[in-house]
């Protein structure tokens, strides 16, 4: 029985190998432990041990990546979001239970949990959560609400615990979201940016949900409890003030810029989005015209070139 294998030594970097689960990627014989055909197991693969040899087998459908002896398979399915501690995510509350909110980060996956102890109480006081607090949970966040949060902990089974214990996190209002494959959002130092001449605030959720709203006035406070109050007041002010038609058109343009990048499967970064936005202005495109296929191709040309 012969196996079609891609041995680490023979796979050239220029050729992309698509492999299916169960396909053998590499074989190293046990009789020669110092041999040249040994490998390191990367993600997307597992090792199958037989009496005479170790086999590296793909566990996902994807493209083989190889760095020296490390062989991994990069999955082609992009819907998977694997949370890491510290990720900024944007999710939607799906249910409220006695001690926690359930937050949907990506559709058709297990919801993450936001415990009552993981949120700031209104007014920013630090104290134990009482039974009254858990009765009032719905007044703070209810089903359907969008929240920004940080991944606090990943649990054994892969489910996530979130927290919003910072002035920057919490309920999102008066703006819109775009959902892109999580893979398109690279992890950055800062996922909360103000872009395009301080016009918009954008939250690049690591789970692929991007929240955008018009920029709130700058918060240059020194800290302390008054900061929290100030922040809360600003938030309410922002949420209750309707957008002007001009602001709304600009926001729609930003949304469509992100949508353009999603359609051509390019990384959605601040730079790329700004570029598409500016190009659409330079070409004098109507906001809704941006999603006409010919224009999508034209607008995203630099981004596609950059990614090769």
């Amino acid at each position: 029985m012969s196996h079609d294998t891609i041995s680490p030594s023979s796979s050239s970097s220029s050729v992309k190998h698509l492999v299916i689960p169960g396909q053998i990627l590499a074989v190293s014989s046990l009789s020669d432990p110092n041999g040249q055909d040994s490998f390191l197991r990367g993600h997307g693969t597992y090792v199958e041990k037989t009496e005479t040899e170790d086999r590296l087998v793909a566990s996902v459908l994807g493209i083989v990546q190889r760095v020296n002896k490390l062989v991994s398979v990069e999955s082609v399915s992009d819907g998977v979001y694997v949370g890491q501690v510290g990720d900024l995510v944007v999710g939607r509350i799906t249910s409220v239970t006695s001690q926690r909110w359930k937050v949907r980060l990506i559709p058709h996956a297990r919801d993450a949990a936001l415990p009552l102890s993981g949120v700031h109480l209104p007014g920013g006081v630090q104290r134990m959560r009482t039974a009254q607090d858990s009765r009032d949970m719905r007044s703070y966040l209810q089903e359907g609400d969008l929240v920004s949060a940080e991944v606090h902990k990943t649990q054994q089974d892969g489910s996530l615990l979130l927290h919003t214990r910072s002035v920057r996190y919490g309920k999102l209002e008066n703006g819109c979201i775009v959902t892109v494959p999580p893979k398109l959002i690279p992890r950055r130092k800062n996922h909360f940016t103000t872009i395009l001449n301080q016009q918009f605030q954008v939250l690049w959720g690591c789970n692929g949900v991007i929240w955008m709203q018009r920029a709130m006035p700058d918060l240059e406070a020194t800290g302390g409890p008054e900061l929290v109050e100030l922040q809360e007041r600003r938030r309410v002010e922002h949420a209750s003030m309707p957008l002007s038609p001009e602001e709304r058109r600009n926001l729609a343009r930003l949304r469509n810029a992100i949508e353009c990048l999603r359609l051509v499967f390019c990384r959605v970064t601040q730079e790329a989005v700004e570029q598409v936005y500016e190009t659409s202005l330079a070409l004098n495109l109507n906001v809704s015209q941006m999603l006409v296929p010919v224009n999508v191709i034209r607008l995203t040309e630099p981004s596609r070139k950059a990614e090769g």
Binding site: N174, G175, C176, P242, L243, P245, R248, R249, A252, R253, R255, N256, E259, N286, V287, S288, M290, L291
Partner: peptide, 15 residues
């Protein structure tokens, strides 16, 4: 947000 947008003749996707 959606209702206001429709009212202002600029929907979420700019239509």
């Amino acid at each position: 947000f959606i209702r206001e947008g429709c009212h202002q003749n600029c929907r979420v996707d700019g239509r």
